[in-house]
């Protein structure tokens, strides 16, 4: 008498079950593999999205700005200070004064923010410990979170009267005001970036210096600055990039005069402020509108260049240093 498991139909059933389970396993493997593949490609796409967006920002702005390229006088665009887009007789689209306005406000802001930011970063990361350090870091972080429109508001309502009172300027919204506000705004970025750069210097450097009898300041000056100089430079460059692109604060604080400033108390106008104030008033599909997009392109190129240089400064040297 055969056991039940030896009968033919039973064996057939067993074989069937084995085949089915094999198919199931393969199927499961297949599904897992497919899911894995699908998810990985989604993630890959998300990873590349940043690049995608950078290109599409450039592309879409170029698309609209390109309408102006045929008739735009490039020599005038770059080298003339005449900005009269609304003129009925002959509109002029010279952006030199705007560019100089942007650069002067940025320059003033950086002259203020770079030493302040670097000094504060050194103080926080090298001279403070424990609670004090944490508190200062949090304060800096919080002041980085203040929206630019609030800074603009402060410049417009609070700093402007002070500027008039202390300098006797006819208007309070001018280069000085804009530079002050922009400087205060960009300090937190510089502080946190340069603090990162200082932290990246290995402690062994500090210990070696201390064992040679160096004081704290000597360590900072002779060891940390040379070791972290690329990071610090990159921090300042990123600050410059942000300052060039800042819109609301300079829109509200710099006054609106399209001319090359001759003193700190002259009102100026920046590239960003021009776009912000005029895009709403210029009808779409006209030269003025397209030229504003061309200015946007100019801004994009400017900040792109600054950012790439900052990146090269950090990364290019990072490969060369050996810690």
């Amino acid at each position: 008498m055969k056991a039940a498991s030896q009968t033919r139909p039973w064996r057939a059933a067993q074989r069937l079950a084995r085949v089915a389970s094999e198919i199931g396993t393969n199927l499961r493997r297949l599904v897992i593999g497919r899911t894995e593949w699908a998810i990985e490609s989604v993630i890959r796409l998300c990873g590349w999205s940043a690049i995608l967006f950078v290109f599409s920002i450039f592309g879409f702005i170029l698309l609209i700005a390109a309408n102006a390229f045929g008739t735009l006088d490039w020599r005038e665009f770059f080298f003339s200070t005449e900005w009269q887009p609304d003129s009925v007789v002959k509109p002029h689209y010279g952006t030199l004064a705007l560019l100089v306005g942007t650069l002067s406000v940025t320059g003033l802001a950086m002259a203020l923010a770079a030493p302040l930011g670097l000094g504060a970063a050194v103080f926080i990361s090298e001279f403070c410990h424990g609670k004090v350090k944490e508190t200062l870091k949090v304060l800096v972080e919080l002041s980085a979170a203040i929206p630019s429109v609030v800074w603009g508001f402060v410049g417009y309502m609070v700093v402007a009267p002070l500027v008039i009172r202390f300098t006797g300027a006819p208007v309070g919204v001018n280069l000085l005001n804009g530079g002050l506000i922009l400087g205060l705004m960009s300090v937190p970025i510089i502080v946190s970036m340069s603090e990162d750069a200082l932290r990246a210097v290995p402690d062994a450097y500090r210990e070696a210096a201390v064992s040679l009898g160096a004081s704290r300041w000597e360590i900072v000056y002779r060891v940390l600055f040379p070791a972290a100089k690329n990071g610090l430079l990159a921090a300042v460059l990123l600050g410059v990039g942000r300052a060039i692109g800042e819109t609301m604060a300079v829109l509200m604080c710099t006054g609106h005069a399209v001319k090359i400033p001759h003193s700190l108390l002259d009102p100026v106008r920046t590239l960003t402020a021009t776009i912000a104030s005029e895009l709403g008033e210029s009808p779409a599909g006209e030269m003025h509108y397209w030229v504003l997009f061309t200015i946007g392109l100019e801004l994009f190129a400017l900040t792109f260049a600054v950012n790439v240089v900052a990146d090269l400064v950090v990364k290019g040297i990072r490969s060369a240093r050996n810690y």
Binding site: I64, T272, I275, T303, N307
Partner: peptide, 29 residues
């Protein structure tokens, strides 16, 4: 590295240029 550079650059694009992009891409296109 290119992707990381893209992220850095996207972070550095001026906010008003983002606005222009928004007009071009989302509002119009």
């Amino acid at each position: 590295r290119v992707v990381a550079l893209g992220v850095t650059n996207l972070a550095g694009v001026p906010s008003i240029v983002h606005g222009l992009f928004g007009v071009g891409a989302f509002v119009l296109f």
